[in-house]
Design a protein around this nucleic acid. Structure first.
Lengths: 194, 194
DNA sequence: GTCTAAATATGATCAAGAACATATATAATA
DNA sequence: TATTATATATGTTCTTGATCATATTTAGAC
């Protein structure tokens, strides 16, 4: 048998990394297989030994980006309760996140692209979104036993804030709007805590 | 002189309408000049008598969509203060808005597409976004004379909520998250009012 | 009615990019 | 070292779509 299995796995990994970066920053249509493969140190032909289509790659890259993204990074640390929440908010609604973070949150970077993608992709996106909410709800420790739907507003605020700060032309405006979102997010959290 | 001037204006109008719809719902790359012109009752050749490029059309369609969009529609009614605000929120964060409204808000429908567009387009987007904030701030009537940056969080919540509800796979989830956003928005407003 | 300038239509060009088919290079095994 | 299965590379096809050049139609002016 040729080429060790880990060689192939490493190649696939590099493809996923470069695909995730490109898809998140340039969107679906503007990223090409050629460039992705070139960034991964290969040429286009090798692509089809790893994935069946561009759309499938998008799906896998989305999952990959979510697992390694800014948000999940915070999940790993050992803070608890509101300390975790505030730290996560600071990081998520930050300047570094929207401009050039290595691992941005796909939920925020490609919200608008998702509606036109294949059903599988939308399903993947939805799953990731649900997980994000579930995770935050866990840290919120809502006393009342009603559902945790308040979290939806918080995540919408986070995702909207980051997406907007990226869209907007004016860096100063981006900073101000992120600051405003941080404040509002904390306020929403404090109320829910009661 | 051939063709009356209003004839040309009417054609341009139809192009803008069909372009706005297509750009908002399908995004930049998935909408083609051919289809836009066909929807407007012409063929591609006629396009260049009205606009210089697809990118220029996008810019103009964005402005057009903003002027005729869901948000501006509410600006015209005669409600005042918090009545206006709550009505606007109900309409903006509504099911009809994210699924198939004739005139959706471009800020929410194409947030993520903007970062990769030409500078002129980003400038236009930013201008529209600023106007939205200014308008809401006007109705908020903030007592304190500090800046009105709290509005940024409100609009981020609105835009994020609508964008997410469109992305998500599950209509029930979309409804719940919109409801959550409506509640949170009102809460944010009530606090600012003090 | 004829003429003319501008609006619209048709045909052609050109580039980009996904997908595939075929070639080559690799590394484990015998 | 020869073999072989598989990873990667190269060349090609095909489609799509923006743009442009050239026709044709239109409605007002003479």
């Amino acid at each position: 048998m040729p080429y060790t299995l880990q060689h192939k796995k490493a190649s696939r990994q590099r493809i996923l990394e470069s695909a995730a970066r490109s898809f998140l920053y340039l969107g679906y249509e503007r990223t090409g297989i050629n460039e992705i493969m070139h960034d991964a140190g290969m040429t286009r032909g090798a692509f089809y030994a790893h994935f069946n289509s561009k759309s499938e790659l998008y799906d896998k890259a989305l999952t990959y980006a979510a697992a390694n993204g800014r948000f999940m990074a915070y999940h790993k640390n050992d803070k608890v309760g509101s300390a975790w929440l505030k730290g996560m908010l600071e990081g998520y609604l930050s300047q570094e996140h929207f401009e050039g973070a290595e691992t941005p949150c796909p939920l925020a970077f490609i919200v608008t692209d998702i509606a036109n993608r294949e059903p599988e992709v939308r399903q993947t996106y939805t799953r990731i979104y649900k997980r994000m909410n579930r995770l935050i709800a866990h840290y919120t420790e809502n006393k009342s036993d009603k559902n945790n739907d308040e979290v939806f507003a918080l995540t919408a605020l986070m995702i909207g804030g980051v997406a907007l700060s990226r869209a907007v032309d004016d860096p100063g405006l981006a900073d101000r709007l992120l600051a405003s979102c941080r404040q509002a997010a904390v306020r929403l959290l404090d109320e829910d805590g009661e």
